[in-house]
Each structure stands twice: as C-alpha cells, then as structure tokens.
Design a protein around this nucleic acid. Structure first.
Length: 550
RNA sequence: GCGGAUAUGAUCUAGGGGUUAUGAUAGUGGCUUCCCAAGCCACUUGCUCGGGUUCAAAUCCCGGUAUCCGCACCA
C-alpha cells in the first residue's frame, strides 16, 4: 500500500521532532503521544494564537484549575453517571452493546440478565455478564482517609466551580467569559488514529456566561455580515451570521458569534478553508448537558471529517447542578432600572404556640415556615422526616411586608466553545503539507503560517568563512534577543539547509554571503516562493516582525 | 473489547534456521567555498518484547505490546 498523507506526516513528525509515540522504549502505550521540540513550540504557538482571540479580542479572563477533580464535582456535573455505560459482549458473535439500548424498558438490569431476558440482536444468543465501562480515569486523594477523584474529562468544571468568585471578579456584569487551556483525560476504549484520539489530550475551553434572556453579543454588529460555512447534515452552505440567526439555523447571536470567532481562529492558524465546515449536532447526538451544539470539522484525507471544536449551548445545566449539589449561591442578578418595592407576604410563626405543640420539631418547622412562599393560604402542611404535619392557623400570622428588590436572581446560561488542540495541530500539519518533485526526488514543504511556525528564521552563512560566520552569529543573536525564534545552521550545503528549513515549516531564511561583508546586507528567502530579497542588516528585525505578526 | 494484517538503525526498506544482516535517506567529522537535499572520504545507529521448538531463532510456533484495517466505542 502506498503511503498516504497521514503516514508521511507521522514519519516527518517523528524524524523532525514534532511528535513521538510515548514510552516507546517500553513498548509504547496506545493513546499517548509526546510532543518533541518543534511540536511543543507549534502547540504553544497555536494555544497562544487561541488566547489572542479569547483574551484580547473577546476580553475573557484565563484561569488554571487542577486536573485531578473531586468525585462530587463530576457527580454533580453528570459525568459520573452519563460517562458510564453498562456494556455486554456476545460470546458467540463477538459484538458489544450498550445494555440500555438492547433491554426492554421497565426492566432492571439484574432482572434482565439473571433471567436470561437479554438476547443478542445479531445472533439471538442469550447475553451474560454485563460490566460497567467508565471513560474517566479514577484515582484517590490522600492515603488513609482518601477521597474519590477523577482525572478531569474536560477543563470546564474548574470554571463552573469558581463561578461565584469569577462573577464577582468581573464585577457582576454579564456576559463575561472565562477560559482555560490544559489537559483532559478520557480512558478511551480503543484509541487509534494517532493524535486524533488520545487518552490524555490538550484542550482549550471558554465558558461565556449570558443572561438567558439576552444571548446577544456586543461584537455581533461588527461581524454580522461575515459568512459562516455551515453543514446541516445534508448540504453545505455559506451564510451570513445575521441571516443564520434570523432564520433560526443558529439559535442565538452568541452561538453564531463564537462560531465566527472559531472560524477566524482556525483560518488564521492555517486551516484550509476548503477543508472546514460547521456541522450541527442532531438531537440524538447531543451531550447530556447540551441544548444546541455545532462542531467545527476539519477534513483529513485519511480520516474524513474530524470534530475539532464543539460549540455548545450548555444552558444553565452545570451551574444549576452545582447550586443544587453544593448549596452555593451561584446566581447572577438582573438589576431593575429602578428598585422595585414589592409587597411580600410572609409567615411569622408564633413560637409561643408552636413550641409547646410540636416540642422538638418546632425549630425545624420554624425554619420551613419562614422560608415558605406565600400566596393564598388555607392550610399548611410541613413534612419532617417523612411525616406530614398540619400546622394549625393559630400557630402563625401572615404578615405583608414591603420589600425593596434591586433585581431578580437567575442562573446564567453558558456558551462553550471547546477546542481539541491536538486534533487542530494534526489537521494544520496535514493541510499545510506539500510535496513537490525536485530533480526527480520528493521534496517536502510544511507551509505553516509564519505566526504559527515553531522556527521563524533560519540563519545560514553561505559558506563556512569565519567572516560570514561572525556576521551570521550576530544576526542570530539579535533576532533571538528580539524574541524571534531562529535556527542557526552552518553545516552542509546551502541547498540542504534550505530543504531542512522547508521541511519544518520555517518561513524565512537569512543567508549571509560575501556581499554581506562589503555592504552590510543579507538575502531573505521566502519559503513558499523561494524568492530572495536583499535587505540591510539593521532592517531585518523590523522586516521579519512585520511578516510574522498575525 | 472482538476479528484480520503488520513489526528489521532516527526514517524508509531488502533478506532470512547457521561466520560480520542489504540498500537508501538522515545525522556527525573532514575535503570542497558552494544560493536551493551536488560530489568525495571516514564515521554513527537496527532484527518489538517474553516464552517455546532446535545443536543453533532476527527467521518457525505461542503469548504480550504497538501500529494499521473492519466491527463496537468516542458523554
């Protein structure tokens, strides 16, 4: 079988220090890859470009939270339950099934399997021995009295669990966004496809909190005429943000805006526009927390369309779960223009009567009564420890108070753009990989965008003449002092050195030749055109800076 | 997790029960002083791991691991 792009990229990636299989000397482990020297830089550049969009353009704030996450957090978020599938294998035809999909409803799993009520949908053999599959890595915190924990399957929960503090930090204004860039972990059943499906992966997530009554975005006006590449599972279309929201294709402005931001980021990172689209999730593929979700998909010649970004409307799901589980006040306040004076009826218990009547339960009854919402009261029942008690009328007064309300409390909704950095990185490599023939030989060029590429400038003395080397070394140092990543190379022939730089995606090569000694000038070679321009040495830094800025 | 295929220097690959394992690429040092992988010399790096069969295993057999393909999984 001839090598396809994937093979070629993985070969190049290993040879040139982008990506290595992890623990290879001990046989390796599926789903884990290391980033080598160039890969690490490339990844950092992609992450920092991403930060640019969210921290600067969208004015989000960044936080960092632990990758080890307490059981309670993921229980509340639904991951403990939703992330576990009860699975069963057929010993005859070797198929695996999710139990909930093949057993009759209203039957418990124990009953079904103990009484041979489950048959294999393929070969009708009785199925046995269901087992739970949880896709989170579990661990324990502490030695003796340990607490259960998991490696986080997403970075988002770290943001939700800090919502009340971050809301205050943002001076209680909505919308506001929080981002986190870091590792996530999923114990995949059978990871494959290189860095497309990892067990430990890098993600960049943003949680932008909105008033559910107002999912407009302040920047929407500016970009509303820009076009999005949408795919509705049938046909692809190019449609403006404004129109897509108007027709209901996209549920709200905020969602559309972050889709646009995503599209812009990916293009800037070097994604081929022809290999990009947004695909809407069908209702049966939505995650347990999502109301509407659009995936940014990138096309790979090997794998087809790959989900690289998910932009979900998670509504109030997470915050309300954490409010319920932790009893923390994570509400936001929608302020009225003028404070409202509300007439509120409240129950004022008469403890003098209640006390003797209910004795030790009186205290609890008091709290319940005081917090009760009051409309028209006829009889009041209170439930304490499964016992329902009727509270006689002479135990309380209903009093009307005037209450000043400055606004109403609500749970913010959240729009979540979530990016798989490793997948994006792979697709960028694939989309920018180019191969030409030079003198009958394969010649590889990685046409990475200048602001993404790990090395910006190759510094090459044409020949190893000590005068040229001296100038070259000085230029190299000055560039690095100016914060520009360089690669100094005086070995081998000049053509070979250009080839090396082309293969790792270095956009520019500065060559110091004999004229450099005479007139303080060098040539700057452009990777994609191979054209050379002669520049004064003192102008190099500015020239390169202009070229590599976004 | 199931089934199939594969596994030889950093990369690609030839071969194969018996002395020192083939070639190329890459890399290093030197010569060349050279603008797109030029040439010459020298050098560096290897049979996936464990067990078995055998006088002898990189080669045959079994198992593990990894990779690829198909099925299932991918909130």
């Amino acid at each position: 079988m001839p090598l396809d792009v994937y093979d070629k990229i993985m070969m190049l990636a290993k040879r040139r220090g982008f990506i290595y299989p992890s623990f290879e000397i001990y046989g390796g482990s599926a789903g884990f890859y290391d980033y080598g020297p160039l890969g690490s830089r490339l990844k950092q550049n992609i992450e920092n470009l991403w930060r640019n969009y969210y921290l600067l353009q969208d004015n989000c704030v960044e936080i960092n939270t632990p990758t080890i996450t307490l059981y309670e957090v993921l229980k509340a978020s639904g991951h403990v339950d939703e992330f576990t599938d009860i699975t069963v294998d057929c010993k005859k035809c070797k198929q695996s099934y999710k139990v909930e999909e093949i057993i009759e409803k209203n039957i418990s799993i124990e009953d079904a399997f103990n009484n041979d009520k489950v048959k294999c949908p393929t070969c009708s053999k009785n199925l046995k021995d269901p087992y739970p599959v949880n896709l989170m890595f579990s661990t324990k915190i502490g030695i003796e009295q340990s607490r259960d924990a998991f490696l986080r399957p997403e970075t988002a929960q770290g943001i939700f669990t800090n919502f009340h503090l971050l809301y205050r930090y943002g001076r209680e204004k909505l919308p506001f966004g929080v981002i986190q860039v870091g590792k996530g972990y999923r114990n995949e059943v059978s990871p494959r496809q290189g860095i497309i499906r990892l067990r430990e992966f890098s993600m960049a997530e943003a949680e932008i909190f909105f008033d559910p009554k107002d999912k407009t975005h302040p920047n929407f006006e500016i970009v509303k005429d820009e076009k999005l590449y949408l795919f509705d599972n049938e046909k692809e279309m190019k449609i403006s943000l404004e129109k897509s929201v108007k027709t209901g294709e996209i549920n709200n402005q905020a969602l559309a805006y972050y889709m646009y931001l995503t599209q812009k980021f990916l293009m800037s990172a070097g994604v081929d526009p022809k290999k990009f689209r947004f695909r809407k999730h069908a209702s049966d593929e939505l995650a347990h927390y999502a109301q509407e979700c659009w995936d940014a998909e990138l096309y790979s010649e090997r794998f087809g369309w790959i989900e690289c970004v998910g932009i979900a409307d998670r509504s109030a799901y997470d915050l309300s779960s954490h409010i319920n589980s932790s009893k923390t006040d994570m509400y936001a306040m929608r302020k009225y223009d003028k404070p409202k004076i509300m007439k509120v009826k409240k129950i004022v218990p008469k403890m003098g009567v209640l006390g003797p009547l209910f004795k030790d339960k009186a205290g609890k009854i008091q709290t319940i009564l005081e917090n009760m919402k009051v409309n028209d009261i006829k009889k009041i029942y209170v439930k304490i420890n499964d016992e329902t008690l009727e509270i006689p009328k002479d135990c309380y007064n209903v009093v009307e108070f005037e209450e000043k309300q400055i606004g109403e409390k609500f749970i913010p909704h959240v729009i979540e753009p979530s990016y798989g950095i490793d997948r994006i990185l792979y697709c960028i490599l694939e989309h920018n990989y180019d191969e030409i023939k030079k003198k009958g030989e394969e010649y590889r060029i990685l046409k990475l965008n200048a602001h993404i590429s790990p090395i910006k400038v190759g510094v090459l003395p044409l020949v190893s003449d000590s005068r040229l080397i001296k100038i070259a070394r000085e230029i190299d140092k000055n560039l690095r002092d100016a914060g520009i990543a360089t690669y100094y190379d005086e070995g081998g022939t000049i053509g070979r050195r250009y080839a090396r730089m082309d293969e790792i995606g270095t956009p520019f090569c500065i060559t110091i030749d004999h004229d450099s000694i005479e007139n303080n000038s060098v040539t700057i070679r452009d990777r994609d055109t191979t054209k050379q321009e002669r520049k004064k040495i003192e102008n190099i830094i500015k020239f390169i800076r202009d070229k590599i800025s976004k």
